[in-house]
Design a protein around this nucleic acid. Structure first.
Lengths: 196, 196, 196, 196
DNA sequence: AATGAATGAGGTTTCATTCAT
DNA sequence: GATGAATGAAACCTCATTCAT
């Protein structure tokens, strides 16, 4: 049975299982067993690869954040216009839902828990600030710095707010797309309002 | 120590202690002991008055929701103008922070947990829909029904989004007031844009 | 509310409630609360009158034993023939069922518990020996001492065995009467067999 | 410590410890800790192998019933005469005592508790009916069906009654053997009385 | 590399007892 | 004489972690 080079495979198996489990049972209801069962592996392997439950949780959050970052970077090229780039930001953020059927619940669980976990809080902060600075740099190409700052703050709030309300009301895919559209429209209206 | 007529006092003591404990330790870190210790009471008393931990959690959420509703109703009179009413809605929602120093973290913990708890989810839904319908009825007095619907949806998202980002970034009081101001400005801009 | 001379009334109320509760919930499932609720009294009163749960349990067993003794003594007179007396003994033992609809289950619970409770064991022993000596003294008038001893031993076992199997199989009233008849027939056959 | 293939060993260890604990402390006094301490294992292992205390209790009863059945089956062969078979039934039932020093008290505790526990009651019923039908089939080879029925009923009661009185009076081994002899004699007298 | 048996700390709940009223 | 609020020990169960294999 022992194979070499299994490490990355096992790690990803466990991270995927964690996302699933947290989505289904919540962070509170997720146990080392619920994860390892979903992964089709033994419970001991978690300590082996991640040092413990906490390590796996953090790795999972890190993975989700990286995925989000990638989702944006994959679409943007040097030729992308600022407005187009803003639309991609929205899409990337709403795609938190689509990548894996139920990442969204997982995101929210982690968000809430980050209030009481310094490690997680640092990670979430990075993400929150990245959304803001991504928005800001694009807006800056379209308006004055101070307007761009305001626009970025409002857009970030609108994206998170629409997304949050969609998640919490257990919306279906159509409603998510509707919210994504609202977010895009709002950003366009900000450009129109403040754009030079 | 046993006295008569203590029931309402004890219930409130325990609810307050729950809010404190969830704010400080998170819902996951909150135990029957952390609560009863904060309340200065024994652990058994929780089962006595609320039937168990779950009962106390639900009672606490119900209390927070009622408080929020009261915060709004206390300010609104028949003479309040629609615009004024909208401003009060924003204030009431942001005052979730002020009433008790750290209700906010508690709110977020409950929100996240509601994804995996039917009882809590029902309660949260009531709240979410109330925010929306409060906004809607005020907007309807200022614009067409379809515009009002959109405005309410966007305002609700903006309020929640600003509030959420403020909570998660562990903002101070000043930042909260800044966010409250942004929310109010946004609503005014919606009125200007769509208002008859 | 405070009345005088309530003591015997309250004590009997609580004993009756204990019999009911043990019958319904078992000795294990019977709590100070289940008893006091059935009695329509407060929980504190049990300590007041019986010093605690254990005291009430013992008083209840004592009451059941006394009732059984009375049931026999009420029927027997100096003129009662030995055979008639033996029939009355059977009747009294089976009437453990009838007095109060479900004394039987209560009896068995106490019996079992008496294995691990010296107080109760002493009480049960008194009862067991009384059944034997009641039988013995009657048989002695009908046969030799050594035969009477054997007959008493066998009769006691037959009475308890029939009764136990009837209780455990949750028999109805008819089946109990059938068992009572079997016990009587058995005793008559012993008299015929050993009788001078 | 962890080894493979320990499951059957551990299960039996725990069942034996349960029998001991119930005999010593009663079903009421038996806790997850009293059992695991006797077994020399941790408390958690009980949930691991039996899902909880209740599961272990049931497994223990099942084990006792199976042992009783085996005790009989080991002695009976196709050549065994009906009368011999009846004697073996008595022996098997009285050997409930001998197998392990104090199974008897355990039996009685379970019996009493079965009045308030459907699972246990079902198991006990099986046992009670098996005793009866074992007796019945043997008697049928020696007398008319209706007589056999009566003989089986009386024998079952006599066996249980003698056994019960022996247990409750905390009899020693000699007394048990005396009772076993009485039961056998009684069955022989039934054969003489009704036998063709 | 991977398993899963075993542990035991910690959580919730139950409940006999106490005692101010 | 009677209440029932309050306590806290003890019970059961869960679960992250360890470690022999």
């Amino acid at each position: 049975m022992p194979k070499v080079g299994m490490e990355p495979v096992r790690r990803q198996q466990l991270i995927d299982a964690t996302i699933e489990s947290v989505a289904e049972l919540g962070l509170q209801g997720t146990t080392i067993n619920s994860i390892s069962k979903k992964a089709g592996l033994s419970s001991g392997i978690i300590s082996h690869y991640f040092g413990g439950k906490q390590g796996l949780i953090e790795a999972t959050v890190r993975y989700l954040l990286t995925s989000l970052k990638q989702a944006l970077m994959n679409q943007v090229t040097p030729q992308t216009s600022p407005e187009q780039r803003l639309m991609f930001i929205v899409e990337a953020n709403f795609s938190r839902i689509q990548q894996q059927s139920n990442n969204t619940k997982t995101w929210l669980s982690f968000w809430a828990h980050s209030m009481h976990d310094v490690q997680l809080h640092r990670l979430q902060n990075v993400n929150s600030k990245r959304l803001f600075s991504n928005l800001l740099s694009s807006f800056k190409q379209l308006m004055s710095d101070s307007d761009a700052n305001l626009a970025a703050e409002l857009s970030a709030a609108m994206i998170d707010g629409l997304w949050l309300r969609a998640v919490l009301s257990k919306s279906d895919q159509d409603q998510f797309e509707h919210c994504e559209q609202l977010a895009k429209d709002y950003i366009r209206s900000l450009i129109k309002q403040y754009g030079a």
